[in-house]
Design a protein around this nucleic acid. Structure first.
Lengths: 201, 201
DNA sequence: CGAGGTATTGAAGTAACTCAACGCTGGTGG
DNA sequence: CCACCAGCGTTGAGTTACTTCAATACCTCG
């Protein structure tokens, strides 16, 4: 396996094209965050998923979905040639099983986010986003969390179905209430994860 | 296979409990529409998926997801005992492959609906819902479609992240513009599917 | 007929959007 | 070195799309 793969570093904004077009390779996310998004004809955009290490990237069985993958932060990908992966799967049923597990998890996450998009207030949406990032980027520590946001305000807005102004205002409000501390616009500290979770609706 | 399965008829509102709790059986939807939904602690509800015949119902590998399944319309289910299905899968890899295909399709549909929830107007949401039902319930005919809505206004609102009043108003507007004809509150005719699609954003 | 569930319509309220001004930061070039 | 600019983020003021609250209509079933 090792001989047929290689690691590639990608800067934010790089289109990874893993699902949108016929691709030659699949990939594993080794570091950083990849955003999956869809756009309407008139340009409205919605981020429909975030992938963290060590998620698998790319659609099996060649069916095209109209999802585009893009590096949200700086991202390291371990690319695997399509033929190599498909051979691996044919040989090893456990691998397909593992991919099935990830797909089921992604489906759960998508449905969970549908609740956020459809039924939560702007404030709850922003809190839910911070909670998601806090629990995915820094899964080790206890109730206090610290991390850098891997997304711009514009990306966050596209993930939450809001405008950047509304995201900014809600972040300011959460900061004023000491739910989070924000420095340099990107670095976030959550003193009490439970208090943040309580704001998620 | 046939000897271990049996068909059950379910009235609207029946909780099918296929994913929410440890169940003894899986099922195939033979007729009707099943709604999958999630609720927040305070009771806000979001429908996160609709299943039409001949979809498979039930979560493989026993992982519980907090999704509840309920008959939206009158539904016929072909129930399959858990053990029988799992034996079938173990014997027949093609079956797991087919289930993987359905899961991938459900993931695509969930992400497509995230765009609707996050980025479309109320009017576009209602049009998108009608388009979804029109194309799923009556896939045979040409550009003219006729069907009965399998969901109440309240269900539609929970699917679209709106209130029942907004759903009702937007339906009235689409009717006034001759995009759809509605009789008896439930029966819908779409004279020109292309015109409806153009209203979906 | 009356009751209860479902749907429509109107009027008033509000959460989020739009438009606009301003601040901060990092990079570039005179 | 500082002036300038471009990109990102924040904040304020006014607008609007959707919600909320309330009244009414419709349909089925006792």
């Amino acid at each position: 396996l090792a001989k047929s793969t290689h690691v590639v570093r990608n800067q934010p904004g790089t289109e990874l094209a893993a699902e949108a077009m016929p691709v030659q390779s699949y990939a594993n996310v080794m570091r950083g965050v990849v955003k999956l998004s869809k756009v309407l004809e008139d340009g409205r955009q919605q981020i429909v998923g975030l992938q963290f290490a060590p998620d698998f990237l790319g659609r099996l069985y060649g069916k095209e979905s109209a999802v585009t993958a893009e590096a949200a932060s700086e991202v390291d990908l371990c690319r695997v040639p399509r033929a190599a992966l498909e051979k691996l799967i044919a040989d090893n049923p456990a691998l397909e099983h593992r991919l099935m597990q990830q797909t089921l998890r992604e489906l759960d996450e998508a449905r969970e986010w549908m609740v956020t998009l459809g039924r939560k207030t702007a404030s709850e949406k922003v809190a839910s986003f911070l909670y998601l990032i806090a629990t995915h980027l820094d899964p080790t520590t206890g109730d206090r969390r610290a991390f850098d946001l891997p997304l711009t305000r514009s990306d966050i807005a596209d993930f939450l179905g809001l405008t950047i102004e509304t995201v900014s205002r809600q972040l300011s409000k959460l900061r004023a209430e000491r739910i989070v501390e924000i420095t340099n616009n990107r670095h976030v500290e959550v003193p009490n994860l439970g208090r943040l979770k309580a704001r998620c609706g």
